[in-house]
Design a protein around this nucleic acid. Structure first.
Lengths: 200, 200
DNA sequence: TTTGATTCAGAACGATCATTCTGATATCAA
DNA sequence: TTGATATCAGAATGATCGTTCTGAATCAAA
């Protein structure tokens, strides 16, 4: 049992998250993490076992801290595209407060940089994308009028399209400094989806 | 003037391109590049001046070798969404031949990994995205019926949506081994766009 | 063949990487 | 206070990084 616990494992994770989020895995050195967390190397290795495990802990923390609070509304049984729009707005305004161009999405960044070469990260990324797809599908179903225009397969594909767009959007948020552009793109996209699933 | 030129600068670039494309900038060491090109360090530094400049040369080579051949059809004055679909199909089938999950898009990868921390790469990424947007806008205009439903601003935003989707799609191609999923997603997306710009 | 420039393979370099280790310091039970 | 333990700051370690350098091999022109 620890005698002193000035820095908890969760605090450590919270402070490291920002650095991994912004710089990715390879460009985040242990020195950087020591500086940004204020913890000693000993503490980091004691808490996680290594840089990689620390990264995975930050991944999980990101989902709990950033993804879930904004996305649970999409997963509600009665959610529609309005909740999807709220989810996008929440993430865009958060990015604006932090400053654009921003770090984008921790998961999307990991998907391109780390996941292709690391099965652990790949599994977590796919789990995240599956969650997004399920939530989007839920909203699409509720939005679709009773007289379905689209088959179940088409609806599922559309949910996948939403996931693809989402990943592209957070990628864009690493480059643009214009939050309103992200907002307008999202609105156009959702308008397009809405027209697609509405009755002709 | 060189006495011996077994390996030209272009050959060097071609061979390094694959490694940077798959592994990104940070995870591609000089040792890796020496091995994958078959050239000496001396040759690499003589031809480019450093790892970073070599990366930029590969970036340009990627555009000439991969992007332009598939995208010029979208930039033709009479191009429509059919050419856009052909562009996607060309890239997806190329990825399938190379093997999925694949390296995705060199530019999209660089956009998340390198561009936020390097102004040179950022400029090239933005240039690429601007080119895509212009081409997509061209196709959207030609596809739109004479009695416009959408304003010029909306059409431009839609072109931006296409760019966002594109980046998300190539990101997905780094994770999935199912080319038909990419195809189906693209088809659904383009169907959605088509319905959006068609008369009601 | 001799010469002089060029490319070669690979060693050398200083910096930095992730990881481990070492005393000194701080904390708590007694 | 004392003694045991946990955390501290930072040095040590071996590996690897990007870059430069060295001497041998290779070439075209004399």
């Amino acid at each position: 049992m620890p005698r002193k616990a000035n820095i908890t494992t969760q605090n450590l994770t919270d402070r490291a998250l920002g650095h991994f989020w912004e710089n990715g895995f390879h460009a985040s050195s242990l020195d950087d993490l020591v500086k940004s967390t204020g913890a000693t190397r000993h503490a980091i290795y004691g808490a996680f076992g290594g840089k990689k495990q620390m990264f995975l802990a930050c991944f999980q923390r990101y989902q709990d801290l950033v993804v879930s609070p904004a996305f649970t509304q999409v997963e509600q049984p009665d959610a529609t595209l309005e909740q999807v729009a709220n989810y996008f707005e929440a993430q865009i305004s958060r990015a604006e407060e932090t400053g654009l161009p921003g770090p984008g999405c921790f998961v999307a960044n990991s998907a391109t940089e780390v996941a292709p070469h690391d099965t652990d990260v790949l599994a977590k990324v796919e789990e995240h994308n599956a969650r997004l797809k399920l939530g989007f599908l839920n909203a699409l179903r509720n939005e679709t009028p009773a007289t379905h225009q689209l088959s179940a397969e088409e609806l599922e594909l559309l949910a996948g399209v939403l996931v693809v767009f989402t990943n592209g959007l957070w990628s864009t948020s690493r480059l643009t400094q214009d939050g309103d552009f992200l907002r307008a793109s999202t609105r156009q996209f959702l308008e397009t989806i809405r027209k697609r699933i509405s009755a002709p």
